[in-house]
Design a protein around this nucleic acid. Structure first.
Lengths: 116, 116
DNA sequence: TATTCCACTTTCCTTTTGGAAAGCACTTTA
DNA sequence: TAAAGTGCTTTCCAAAAGGAAAGTGGAATA
C-alpha cells in the first residue's frame, strides 16, 4: 500500500534550519560568539560580559565553538602564558542570523511591554 | 573600590538575542512553525512532516507556541470534531530568522561536504 | 607574606529535554 | 465486525543542559 502522504513537505526548509540549530543550540553559544566578535578575548572578560554564565558552561561551549571553527584558542607563550579567544572568519557568516534575532528580540520586547 | 570592568560590553546585542532564543529555543519550535506556515494544519500531518518528532513533544511544543501567539489551535465543531493549527500573523515576523538559518545551514552543509 | 588574578576543573545536584511504547475515546473505512 | 485513523495523554526512563560552590596551580601584586 502506498503512503498516506497527506501532509505538505517542508523538508527543504526544515532540514537546513535544523543543521544550523545543531551548531548554535543552547542559550549560550550565540552570546559567546557575540562577545568574542565584540572584542573580548580573555576567559574572564568573556565570562563577565555575559550575565549569568558560569565558568563550567563557558569552558564547555568554547570547546564546542572551537570544534565548529567559529573561534580559535590562541596560546601566547609568555610569562605567564596568556590565552586568547579570537573569532574565526567563519563566525562572520553568522552575522545575518544574529542581526535577525536581535531585531526580532527588540521588537518582541516592545510588543510585550505595550500589552502589559 | 571600582569594578575591574576590563571587558567590552556587548549587552546591546546579547540581551535581545537572548530574548529571541528564549521563545524559539530547542530543536523543534522552528521546524513546527515552518510546517504550520507551509500549510500543515492537523496534528498528524505536522507530526509526519517533521522526521523524528514524537507526539508527546509535538503536543508540548504546540502549547508553547500557542502561548507565544505564534500559532492558534482552532476547534471545528463537526462530527467528529476537527482540530486545526494555523499560523498567527505574528509568526510571519520570524521569516527573516528562518531564512537566515536556512541559508546558513545550506552553506554549512556544503562546507562540510567539500572538506570530507 | 597575604591576597588577588587567571583559566579553568571538579563535584554535586536539579531541571529540562527528549524518546519509546502503550493507551484511549471516538470515528471512519473495509 | 475488524481494522485503521485522529489527537492526543500517560508512564517510564535516559541524556543533556545548566547552576552553585569550591578548588587548583602558578604568577603577579600590595
Amino acid at each position: 500500500m502506498a503512503n498516506r502522504m497527506g501532509y505538505l513537505s517542508c523538508l527543504d526548509t526544515v532540514k537546513p534550519v535544523r543543521d544550523a540549530i545543531e551548531v548554535i543550540n543552547g542559550k549560550w553559544k550565540l552570546p559567546i560568539i557575540i562577545s568574542v566578535m565584540t572584542g573580548n578575548e580573555r576567559f574572564t572578560d568573556i565570562q563577565e560580559s555575559i550575565p549569568g554564565i558560569t565558568p563550567k558552561v563557558l569552558a564547555k561551549e568554547l570547546k564546542d565553538l572551537e570544534q565548529h571553527q567559529l573561534i580559535k584558542r590562541v596560546v601566547i607563550e609568555d610569562y605567564p602564558v596568556r590565552i586568547l579567544y579570537k573569532p574565526e572568519p567563519y563566525a562572520d557568516t553568522l552575522t545575518p542570523i544574529i542581526e535577525a534575532l536581535k531585531g526580532w528580540g527588540l521588537n518582541h520586547r516592545r510588543r510585550i511591554f505595550s500589552k502589559a
